[in-house]
Amino acid sequence: MKTTFTPDIAALDELARRPRKPWRVSLNRSKYLLLLILPTMLYYVLFKYVPMFGLVISFKDYNLFKGIWASPWVGLKYYKMFFESPDFYVLIRNTFLLGFYKLLFGFAAPIILALLLNEVKNAFFKRFVQTVSYLPHFISNVVVASMVLLFLSPSSGVVNEFIQWLGFEPINFMMEAEMFRSIYVISDIWQNAGWETIIYLAALTAVDPQLYESAKIDGAGRFKQLLYVTLPGIAPAIVIVLILNVGSVMDIGFEKVFLLYNPSTFETADILSTYVYRTGLQRGNYSYGTAIDLFTSVINLAFIVTANWISRKTSETSLW
C-alpha cells in the first residue's frame, strides 16, 4: 500500500515561529495517555474506519470467496442499477417523508412539553412528570413495536376493542399502507418527546430570572413573558436541535421501521436502510446494497452540512 505525506503548512509555520519542544518529547510525555486511548482508537479504526474502506465494494463485483480486495472493479454499475431501478424514487420518497413528518411533529412536542413543565411551580409534581416522561426512552424498539402491534391488532387489540365499542368496524392498522407514517411518528413521539425535553429544560434554567421581573414590571402577563423572555432564551438550544434533526432527516433508524413494517405496507414503509437489508444483505447482493449504503451516507452528510451552513448564515448558532 502506498502512503502519501502532505505537510501541514500552518502547523509547520507555528513550529517555526515559537520555540517548541520537539514532537518526540511530546510523544514521550504522552505515552501513558496514548496507552489509555489506544483501545478507543483501535475500536474506531476496526469498527468505523475499516468499514468505510469496505465501501469500495460498491465499485466492485463483490465475491464472497475472493474477498473485498480481489473482487473485480465494475465502476458505477451498481449505482446506475440503483438510480435506474423503479424502487429508487419510492425509497427516496418514503425515507424523506418519514423523516420529514418525524421532524415536523416530533420537533415541537418536546419544546411544548418543556415549556409546560417550566410553568409548574410544584417541584415534586414537576419531577414526577419528568421521571415518567423520560421512561419510554429506555424501552427497547422491540418492546415498543410489539406493543404497537398488539394494541392495534384487529382481533384482540385494545384500540380496536374501543373502536368496536363505539360501533365501528375494526381497522387492520398494520396492513394499511397509508396508516404507517402516522403510526411510526406517533410511537416515536411517545418514545422520545419526554427525553428530548432535557436539553430545553437545561436551557430554561439558564434564563435570567431578572428578565422575568422586568417583564412583569412592564406589565407582561404569563403568555407575553413566554413569548418575549422564555422563547428567546431557549432559541439557541432550539436551533442546535433543529440543525441536528434536519441533518438526520434521511437518517431514520432502521430498527423500528424493520420491526413495524410488512409486505403490505412496503409501499410507504420501505426506506433506504430496510431495502439495503432485504436486497443487499438477505439476498446477498452485497455490492448493490453497499452502493445504496454509500449513497445514503453521502446524502446524510450533505443534509447535516447544509443545515449547519444555513444556520450559520441566518443565525449565530451552528454546530461548527
Partner: peptide
C-alpha cells in the same frame, strides 16, 4: 484523534460493509 472520532458521527461505512468486516 478528536477529529477522527467526531467524523464518525457524520459519516459511516453503512450496514453491509460493517457486516462484512465484522464477519471477516
Amino acid at each position: 484523534f478528536t477529529l477522527l472520532i467526531v467524523f464518525t458521527m457524520f459519516f459511516s461505512g453503512g450496514m453491509i460493509p460493517t457486516f462484512l468486516i465484522v464477519k471477516s
